[in-house]
């Protein structure tokens, strides 16, 4: 089972390696724009809980990047499925649905971790250093696991690459802006807070921010991320079964 999962992972990593020189600049663009626009332009006017806005923003950008890049594995799966027909090659091999999902999720998580390294370097260049303790990495691990698992499930359910873009527009983009990336959750109206509390990115941003400031993240946030990740992973395995026929 592990061998098959690593075979699927190996394929994605080979492709990632080929594209890395193109991907790294693309991973820089959004965080760089946010750091310049919100961090430089607006950040000098704002302090939050004794931290500069740049210090507040960077963990949020890390949560957002780990989400978007982990979720981006869905596009890779769709290209392989709808344009290159690679999905069939894997399905004809003795690879279980669990192994397939595990391999793809691992690839999504790898993308997320590489993108985070890029954001951390950018933050460093902007003079922001964070506490990179085990809690920080655990929160990222859980967040990327959750969104990579969601990505595989959605990639199996959509019928075309265009549908995939719709999912990004309706699920990922709103979450990126509402999930505590740019503003503290407390600044939203109470009714909105009740909704936003249920977004996984809210818990990822909160946990990563706490860890970045050297404090232990809330156990509830980490548990929600972990449990939601396992639920999404399990659903994805079922979605692979559905996608076959």
């Amino acid at each position: 089972m592990i061998q098959s999962a690593f075979a699927v992972y190996y394929r994605e990593i080979l492709i990632l390696r080929r594209r890395l020189t193109r991907l790294i600049p693309s991973w820089c663009v959004s965080p760089l724009l946010y750091l310049i626009a919100f961090g430089f332009a607006m950040g000098k006017l704002v302090t939050l809980d004794g931290h500069t806005y740049m210090e507040f923003l960077l963990p949020g950008l890390i949560a957002m990047s780990s989400m978007t890049q982990a979720f981006a594995i869905s596009s890779e799966i769709n290209i392989a499925r709808f344009y290159w027909n690679i999905f069939e090659e894997i399905q004809a091999a003795p690879v279980s649905d669990f192994s397939y999902v595990a391999g793809e999720v691992l690839a999504g998580m790898t993308r997320a971790f590489l993108a985070i390294l890029v954001v951390l370097i950018l933050g460093f260049l902007f003079g922001v250093t964070l506490s990179l303790n085990p809690w920080f990495w655990l929160a990222i691990l859980l967040n990327s696991f959750l969104f990579a698992s969601l990505a595989v499930g959605i990639a199996m359910l959509v019928k075309s690459h265009a549908d995939q873009s719709l999912m990004t527009s309706f699920v990922i983009t709103p979450m990126a802006f509402l999930g505590g990336t740019f503003f503290p959750l407390e600044n939203f109206p109470a009714w909105a807070q009740n909704i936003i509390y249920f977004l996984p990115l809210t818990h990822a941003a909160t946990a990563i921010r706490s860890a970045s400031f050297g404090t232990r993240p809330s156990g509830i946030s980490l548990t929600i991320l972990g449990v939601t990740g396992i639920v999404f992973f399990s659903i994805s395995v079922l979605c692979v079964k559905k996608a076959k026929d």
Partner: peptide, 20 residues
């Protein structure tokens, strides 16, 4: 249904790994 961005060897290696 080959991986166009990968080499001949890499395509075959992936298949071999899938079949353990």
């Amino acid at each position: 249904n080959l991986d166009r961005e990968l080499s001949v060897f890499e395509n075959l290696t992936i298949h071999g790994k899938l079949f353990r």
